[in-house]
Nucleic acid binder design. Sequence first.
RNA 1: GUGGUUGUAGCUCAGUUGGUUAGAGCAUCAGAUUGUGAUUCUGAGGGUCGCCGGUUCGAACCCGGUCAUCCACCCCA
Length: 461
Amino acid sequence: MSTKPSIPQGTRDFNAATIRKRNYILQIIKQVFETYGYQPLETPAFENLETLMGKYGEEGDKLIFKILNNGLNNEKNIEKAKAGFALVLEGKNSSDITERALKYDLTIPFARYVAMNHTKLVFPFKRYQVQNVWRADRPQKGRYREFTQCDADVVGSNHLLNDAELAMMYDDAFNKLGLSDYTLHVNSRKILEALAQVCNATDQLVLITTAIDKLDKVSWDKLQIELSENGLTAAQLKTIETFISIDGNNEERLAKATHFFAGNPIAIKGLEEIEYVLQTASQAKIKVDFSLARGLHYYTGIIYEVKAPPTVKIGSIGGGGRYDDLTGLFGVNGIPGVGISFGIDRIYDVMEELQLFPENLETGTQVLFFNMGSKEASIAFQIMQSLRQKGVSAELYLEEHKLQKQFTYAEKKNIPFAVIIGSKEIEQNYCQLKNLQTQEQHIVVLDNLHEFLTTQPGYHQ
RNA sequence: GUGGUUGUAGCUCAGUUGGUUAGAGCAUCAGAUUGUGAUUCUGAGGGUCGCCGGUUCGAACCCGGUCAUCCACCCCA
């Protein structure tokens, strides 16, 4: 038996430097959320399985991490468990085997929360949520099995100002992060629906939209073959081809699309909505992209997807959209909403690659007190404590090692200052304060140590 | 779920057509240097070559399986 420790596929440990950088991202995004009046919410790591099942499409259901029931080997459960397992082997679910699952995203648990509390909430209800979610996907670049989502949603309002406001929140956050080279792709589920209508293929909506969503990777020639194999006629393909050839800047695209749909009422609605968001969130770097088709089944209006700067090869770093009736899934009708999500793990990877993190995030220990012998160390400890009381992050080297080792320790931990208090210094109530980067060394009277240290260049709170 | 890549020291990697005792750099530890280091010198420790099996006189190397990894597809943040 190998006892080599390991962590599950697609998960990560985060060290201090990584956590500081992640917190830097989170703090900026949370601050934007708060500024726009969104309130925090947290929901459990796991939900009842039936809350989650069927909300993410067939493929999504397969990617939900399910939790095995306890007590399956209990005698009174054993027959049920066997029958349930037979169902599982057929690819079905059985509450006799599993009735809870790790949450797959933040939107559905939020909808569940709203449905449970709709009589108490004040609408429009704006909340943000930063929590881990889990997907049983194969890990690869920019894809993890445990990752953090960062969502903002507003429910109980149909007003398009919400949609525009969320676009501005993307813009604010990415500008503050130094990712102002992002692009916010925008489309509307209504337009895609209208396309299916114009093609006389309303039952093929999913097929058509997922196909054109691949256009940036797969050529139209190949997609045509795939679509015709699925029963689309040459005339239908021609219509789709005309639609996806719409190009130009945002205004031109909207104009061409208006012409293309020739008065189709659903299309007109969708186009007007995009037009409104474009005008209201005019500072955001929006690109009208009719090939955008987010897979999630619950979107009904505007859909968003954020692309990283083109130099970084990574999938989307955020996404969202409008849904008319999410809580209807939980028996409460008439609560529309719209939301966005930041994929902070991917934002982290992008910022790391583009070196966008500020240098001074490493605010660990600021002062190392050297150990000059056991008597000296206990006096140094008292002096260190008085600094700690004033908020200075300090530590004392515990062992009586030679100075070489103590210096090396400080260097490895990126501690900017060393305080040396030996017998000579103790006699005359001063210490040696050394800046380890510049090698400058000062004689400082102990009473002045705090003030002197905290005003030194290179000192961080 | 499908396809491919790579598994050798703590880390990054060499290792010839299968041949005796598996190497390097970095890192670690000790000493030169008992109150001033990170860029000098000397030395030391460290390996079940992912795991299991097969072929062979002989396997880090060839074959089969398995696990892990990274990448791509599906889908997605």
